[in-house]
Amino acid sequence: MSRHPFSKKSLTEAITPWLFLLPSIVILVTFLAIPIIEAFQWSFLDYKIIADTSEFVGFANFKEIFSDEMFWMAFVNTILYVAIVLPLNIFLPMILAVLVNQKIRAVGAFRVLYYLPVVTPIVVAALMWKMLYSQDGTVSNFFVKLGIIDSPMNFLTNTTTALIAVAFITVWKGLGYYMIMYLANLQSIPKQVYESASIDGANGIQQFFKITVPMMVPSMTLVSVLTIINGLKVFEEIALTTNGGPAGATTTLVMYIYDKFMNLDVSIASAAGLVLLLLAIIGSLIQMKLTSGREDDLKA
């Protein structure tokens, strides 16, 4: 790597980079690195946070969570939640991207309106949907009118619908975000591909499935992995609507960790946190494997 012409290995030269890094290093070590290391330690201790006493217990915390029915329920709910969000996140934003990629008037306004949920504070989003999902709310009325349900219901207090209802809040909030990812990918598809398809007589729908979808594989991969990684960490949508209920139907891993934390079972919370980390690492490794060398495809 070539440096500027006056590059000397002087003391200043050696210190300067560290001066640039210093504020960030102080912050990241204190508020990120140390807490992470401590969480690792705590997961192998029986740590009493108030009394500040600890005892090494080996893998006992992990044994405890793995034999806790609630943990497995949370684990299964997390997987179910991701399984609900994933297909919706892959296809709905793609359709939006195709729509807002049309050369028509006011398309910019539609992009803005589709993106609005992304910038809404999550607390507000949760409150709005809590009202919409209530027994007298619009969703219930609408579904009754369509004949999907017989009588008005609260979607958040029903064990069958609660997780789906919560998952939809996530999907709603992410629509615009993933739409933009697809849009960048979409605009990188050469126009000639569509032109020659038109000449061959392919209609719009055929073009969508035969050209657009295959060409969107790079962003579909990215969206999938982001959905999985973010989905594993779902918290606010649930804490602010169902708080894990009814009867644990929406208790996810993070809700489980949060409950343990609030009960000051910090060692158990840390052990469960490590399980979450492991899942996140697996997700990230898949992401790196799938997206490496694909960067050029994604550039608009």
Partner: peptide, 21 residues
């Protein structure tokens, strides 16, 4: 190191962080 911390879920280290704060 900086990049790898991005994978770590906040919920893993929130308890120690709470104590440090």
């Amino acid at each position: 190191l900086i990049i790898s911390t991005m994978t770590v879920p906040f919920q893993l280290y929130m308890a120690p962080l709470f104590q440090i704060a």
